[in-house]
């Protein structure tokens, strides 16, 4: 179908007024809210950090110095590479991968249970108890985690009381509180795609596999997981992207000595007063995340269309 045909159909189906409105709304959304800001960011990231007076002047030329800065650091420093920023960057990506896998491991059984085992009232109650905590806002939730994981928090108290540990365990310093908080923050984004995918699997297929002698783990490996792959990839993609880009949870729950890469970006924009460098860092984070997701999709043989299903 040609583009002209498409538009003719579109106008016929929706009428002139609605069609124009839809086109304008979608056009506005895509152009002004997605494309334009990103173009500005990209443009920004290739400029020097100049005082407003010099913008547009002779010094305002394109440069890749901000991108180089992440790799090599400042020219004055003794190190040949920007070890601090690079290690934060890699740790952020690594931790995001870890949180994603952790979420998947927790959510898959829950989603499977909701989609294939539980019925009626029970399932609804469980879904509700998953959703309701997210009515509490993100900051409050993060502080609550800080309280329960703190050295006087109930987790430490309980472990001490049970005699499992002798001194409070530094959950915050070791970033365990952070990983738990991040993991929890995006649980729903993992569960729902998984649930959707598994729910549409015909129960008879599971029973057929069992009838043919299959133990439960093989049923999952051969029947359920391959079937749920689009849901798994879409859940993992979302959780990974959002974890790598999270800011509030690392601010509140992160250990004193460990930064999240988004915090560095935030510093450049905010206290550092260097928007071009912040933009460059943000773009590096974004493109690395996209590249990583595409690579994983390649490895696990998932098509982009399946994720959007």
């Amino acid at each position: 179908m040609g583009l002209a045909d498409f538009f003719r159909n579109f106008f016929q189906r929706n009428g002139l007024f609605l069609s124009l409105f839809l086109l304008a709304a979608v056009g506005f959304w895509v152009f002004f809210l997605i494309i334009l800001p990103q173009i500005f960011m990209i443009d920004f990231s290739f400029r020097f950090n100049l005082p407003p007076a010099e913008m547009g002047g002779p010094k305002d030329v394109y440069t890749i110095s901000h991108y180089k800065f992440l790799v090599y650091g400042s020219e004055q420093s003794a190190d040949s590479y920007n070890f601090i920023d690079l290690s934060v960057f890699l740790r952020t990506i690594g931790a995001a991968v870890f949180v994603t896998i952790f979420d998947l491991a927790i959510c898959y059984p829950i989603a499977y249970y909701l989609a294939q085992v539980a019925k009626g009232g029970w399932a609804r109650l469980m879904v509700l108890s998953l959703i309701v905590p997210f009515w509490v806002n993100e900051i409050l939730r993060a502080f609550a985690f800080r309280i329960i994981f703190g050295s006087n928090g109930i987790i430490n108290e309980a472990l001490l009381a049970l005699g499992i540990i002798d001194d409070p365990y530094p959950f915050i310093r070791d970033n365990i509180a952070l990983y738990a908080g991040l993991g929890y923050a995006f649980v729903l984004l993992m569960i729902f795609p998984l649930y959707n995918a598994i729910e549409s699997l015909d129960k008879n297929q599971i029973e057929a596999a069992r009838d043919l002698g299959s133990p439960w783990w093989r049923i999952h490996a051969r029947i359920v997981i391959p079937f749920a792959k689009p849901g798994i990839s879409s859940g993992c993609t979302m959780v990974f992207m959002l974890t790598a880009g999270a800011l509030a949870a690392p601010e509140i729950l992160g250990g004193p000595s460990s930064l999240w890469f988004t915090q560095i970006i935030y510093q450049w924009f905010n206290t550092g007063g260097n928007w071009p460098r912040g933009s460059a860092y943000a773009i590096i984070l974004l493109s690395t995340c996209i590249a990583f997701v595409l690579l994983m999709m390649r490895v696990f043989k998932v098509k982009l269309g399946e994720i959007a299903r």
């Binding site: 008879n204 029973e207 057929a208 069992r210 009838d211 043919l212 002698g213 133990p215 391959p226 079937f227």
Partner: peptide, 19 residues
């Protein structure tokens, strides 16, 4: 259980594995 009985069931909707 069904996996340990000497029976095999052909389902009303066949339930072949589509993948």
């Amino acid at each position: 259980g069904p996996n340990r009985r000497p029976t095999a069931l052909i389902f009303q909707n066949l339930a072949l594995f589509p993948l």
